[in-house]
């Protein structure tokens, strides 16, 4: 079973969100389960800095050799940082999806939206349902 940290929020499309300690910054990446499904990640396309994203917007693409998936913004906000290291080392998404393999950070516009996301338990169920 893949690693699904309890403190994060999730989308059923396999993005995770971490609310940082400042209460307004959210970090976004893809889950361990997602990187496992994709296989070796070879490229990540990230949103542009200062892009304004609404929850559900396409924010990027992650590619493996045989598949490509859109990355959706789990939460609305302005992009304030992108993980430029992924350009040179996309394999970090496979080896460390929740820390060094983060994708981008947004300054969130509505913290309430976090409550609409899945918690670890609900996401675990969603993954199990997918396996059928």
């Amino acid at each position: 079973m893949s690693n699904i940290p309890g403190e994060l929020k999730y989308l059923s499309s396999h993005e995770w969100v971490r609310l940082e300690s400042d209460g307004v910054t959210a970090t976004i990446g893809i889950t361990d389960h997602a990187q496992d499904l994709l296989g070796d990640v070879v490229f990540v396309e990230l949103p542009e800095l200062e892009a304004e994203l609404a929850a559900g917007d396409e924010a990027g693409v992650v590619e493996s050799v045989k598949a490509a998936s859109d990355i959706f913004a789990p939460i609305s906000g302005v992009v304030i940082a992108i993980n430029e290291d992924l350009e040179e080392s996309p394999e970090v998404v496979n080896s460390d999806p929740y820390d060094d393999g983060w994708f981008f950070k947004v300054k969130i516009s509505d913290a309430e939206e976090l409550n609409t996301l899945l918690d670890a338990e609900a996401y675990t169920e969603a993954c199990a349902a997918d396996d059928h």
């Binding site: 070796d40 070879v42 490229f43 590619e63 050799v65 045989k66 996309p90």
Partner: peptide
Amino acid sequence: KRLDDVKAAR
């Protein structure tokens, strides 16, 4: 033999 597709793309 089988080729390293991951290296080819990265």
